[in-house]
């Protein structure tokens, strides 16, 4: 059974009187351990798709299962629980809380899953160790470089041991060299067994992932393995 399973998923928005069909009949399976990229120009529906996959939103029609759980009509609270337990996010603009330290930022998801303070600390330190920022735990995000901030965000995404990690343009705000190290980190995580979905508009980045899903006008126009799959 795939980790993520979408069947005939549509997503409509009402903007004023006008109805916009952002996603139109999406069928998609993503298996455990896959490293995939979703690529498309802006307005193609890739963000909407990512919001659906990331349990930030529910489809207007069709069904969607994540880890065997039907989330097609889940309530806001249920979605929050799923995000907390099964999903890690990495954003283009990092989205760290500027008033919290690195350690506190990484602990944040665990605050909402009722983990004891001691255990939170232990797991956060472990995740920070994984992204090699142990010397920065007392700093606030504004004292870090872009690449370091993104590594904190990755640690935060990892800390609740999610089933799947979504990264929305994770290198968009980084210079190419730093971006490359972040991509390298994703590759390593993938090799360690994490399921990762990377959203991008950059073909070069998409080419790094073994699976490339191209979306245009709300439909999947291509879903194929890349050369990276055979590397």
């Amino acid at each position: 059974m795939p980790l993520i399973e979408l069947r005939d998923v549509t997503r409509r928005y009402l903007i004023g009187e006008q109805e916009i069909l952002a996603l139109n009949g999406i069928n998609l399976d993503i298996a455990q351990g896959e490293y995939a990229s979703i690529i498309g120009p802006s307005g193609s529906g890739k963000s909407t798709l990512m919001h659906l996959l990331g349990c930030l939103d529910t489809p207007s029609s069709g069904t969607m299962h994540i880890d065997g759980i039907d989330v097609s009509r889940a309530s806001g609270n249920r979605l929050a629980e799923l995000r907390n337990a099964k999903i890690g996010f990495v954003f283009q603009n990092f989205n760290l809380l500027p008033k919290l330290t690195v350690l506190q930022n990484v602990e944040l998801p665990m605050i909402y899953s009722g983990i004891s303070a001691q255990e939170r600390n232990k797991r956060a330190l472990h995740a920070i160790e994984r992204v090699e920022l142990m010397n920065r735990i007392k700093n606030t995000p504004l004292q870090l470089s872009g690449g370091q901030m993104q590594r904190v965000a990755i640690a935060r995404a990892l800390v609740n041991r999610p089933k799947i990690i979504f990264a929305d343009e994770p290198t968009g705000n980084l210079d190419s060299k730093t971006g490359a190290t972040i991509l390298q980190m994703f590759r390593e995580l993938s090799e360690e067994g994490s399921t990762i979905v990377l959203v991008t508009h950059d073909n070069k980045i998409a080419a790094e992932t073994p699976r490339r899903i191209e979306i245009r006008d709300g439909r999947i126009v291509e879903d194929a393995l890349t050369e990276a799959a055979f590397a």
């Binding site: 806001g76 929050a80 995000r83 337990a85 996010f89 809380l97 944040l108 909402y112 935060r156």
Partner: peptide, 9 residues
């Protein structure tokens, strides 16, 4: 951000 990492309303 808090909502995204799992905070409920």
């Amino acid at each position: 951000v808090r909502r995204a990492v799992g905070a409920k309303g």
